[in-house]
């Protein structure tokens, strides 16, 4: 695709206070490109939730965002523990996050449901002990 713009981010799993920096950067760039506020908001929320999840559950990973005139595609790839039961993880309110994460304002069990809610499509490819790859698309 000639018109595609690709942004790549390495997400550190070490520092929770920095989680969200990549999403923040993507949001700024999309705004500068003149993408509609509604699409920017959807991408920002979905990617931020995904980025937080990577830091909490998978010790970081990689995020690649591909922007074309038609859509924004986010691929979140980690080498974390994998999701044993995706249907359960998709239920609003279900969380395996430890208490210390809850005290930081996350782990309400809304991450994956929010990611689905704010995107036009979401695919989860997960393997126990190997990692998880989540692909989300927001149409422009």
């Amino acid at each position: 695709m000639e018109d595609a713009i690709v942004l790549s981010y390495a997400i550190s799993g070490e520092d929770f206070t920095r989680a969200g920096e990549a999403s923040s950067d993507v949001k700024k760039k999309l705004k500068q490109m003149g993408v509609s506020p509604e699409a920017v908001r959807k991408v920002a929320i979905a990617m931020y939730e995904g980025e937080i999840n990577m830091v909490i559950h998978a010790n970081g990973g990689e995020i690649t965002v591909t922007i074309t005139p038609e859509e924004i595609c986010m691929v979140l790839d980690d080498v974390g523990p994998g999701i044993p039961d995706v249907d359960l993880a998709m239920q609003a309110g279900y969380s395996t996050a430890p208490d210390e994460i809850r005290s930081l304002g996350f782990g309400a069990g809304m991450g994956l449901p929010n990611m689905k809610k704010y995107t036009d499509s979401m695919e989860i490819d997960t393997r126990i002990g190997e990692g998880t790859k989540i692909t989300m698309v927001v149409k422009i």
Partner: peptide, 12 residues
């Protein structure tokens, strides 16, 4: 914590 500011940012 910083995530409060980031959450606010994502949601405008």
């Amino acid at each position: 914590n910083p995530q409060v500011i980031r959450t606010a940012e994502m949601l405008d």
